[in-house]
Amino acid sequence: MKVTNLFRFYRLGVGKRGVVTTRYPNGPAELPAAAQCAPELTGKCDACGHCAEACPTKAIAVTTSKFTIDLGDCIYCGECARGCPKGSIVMGKNCELSARKREGLEVSYDVRQ
């Protein structure tokens, strides 16, 4: 056992690597390019309901005028995005999804034909 090894960690801390903590609450969240956050409705929707059917947790409700997704039930699996025949649902990049009340987790979009 080398004596110098005993003190390795002093070299390996901030001295070698610097601070690795992200600046997150003070700066923007750094997500990998491929990260998938909550599903978002971005394009046209003809309220066919395939997404609601594909959702394993039944978090999506579609009417002729509204597309509503309950992020409290969503498990971010991406089934709805894959199930949308128009490719209008995408897994977004917004990771700041908290809400002060339970109802705040329900996100609605107007259905645009």
Binding site: F9, Y10, G13, V14, R17, G18, V19, V20, T21
Partner: peptide, 8 residues
């Protein structure tokens, strides 16, 4: 925290 490479 510095030794742990954290901001702390």
């Amino acid at each position: 925290a510095w030794f742990q490479s954290r901001k702390g």
